[in-house]
Design a protein around this nucleic acid. Sequence first.
DNA 1: ATGGGTGCAAAGGATTTGCAACATT
DNA 2: AATGTTGCAAATCCTTTGCACCCAT
Lengths: 145, 145
Amino acid sequence: MKENEAYERLIANGVRPSAQRLAIMEYLLTHHTHPTVEEVYRGLNTKIPTLSRTTVYNTLRILSEHHAAQMLTIDDHHICYDSDTEPHVHFFCKHCGKVLDLMEAEAPVVDVKNIGNNIVDEVHLYYKGTCAECAKRQEKVNEVN
Amino acid sequence: MKENEAYERLIANGVRPSAQRLAIMEYLLTHHTHPTVEEVYRGLNTKIPTLSRTTVYNTLRILSEHHAAQMLTIDDHHICYDSDTEPHVHFFCKHCGKVLDLMEAEAPVVDVKNIGNNIVDEVHLYYKGTCAECAKRQEKVNEVN
DNA sequence: ATGGGTGCAAAGGATTTGCAACATT
DNA sequence: AATGTTGCAAATCCTTTGCACCCAT
């Protein structure tokens, strides 16, 4: 990771850089796994034993409100976060629950500022289905039968 | 509404047509307001006083699993349902919480079957921002100041 | 001294589950 | 009878809130 990238991201988006916020921002910047609140909490708990879930909740909400990160509401039981704030497509596997990034080459580019008189400031593109791995596993099961 | 549209929709998607399921399916087909579980429950409670929330939860989940309706997870506190299962863009107003349909003319058409080896069977396009009404209201406030 | 941030515990809210009664075949 | 569906109550889980303490871009 670039030196101070977390710090710069917070400042650029008008978020005061406390130690906890820096740690959470850095966690998102170095883990492109679309972590949930719980995953961020557990991932940082060893480094910062005093960290509370409340702070993780608060911070992730603040980060997404300030567009320093994206909240992905791709599934009702899987709210997660992504430090990549550029619109890109997310794929959600209904079988294993994994969230993948799909590259621009594989997805339409949407760049809208407003539609009618509605002002658009976030674009979310979610595809859902069966990921390559789960599809392969199911094929095997079918072969056996 | 067409005669028996709810019935046909259930049968076509392999859902057994109980009285409750028919009523919920019909409610979705006649209310294009993207209702939540609670709104469906309240909307039907007068007609079917014995209806329980549990059944509304179960039924809406079954309908979306069978692609007889879509579950929209556009916002963490606003999970709602839409009987239109064709991919179309939804606009969510962060101020008033309203969910609007955007017509095809205003939005990209996405028709994907799979990407890489991932099998896509649902496409969700969500735009978020400020709706025309809320934007207008904010303008007025700004003029006064 | 002040405003903001943190974290504990408790509250709140939404959704699911266990299970007995009921309906439909 | 057998199978699937419903609905009540309770349990669970996730998230927010109240509040006291702490800290310092």
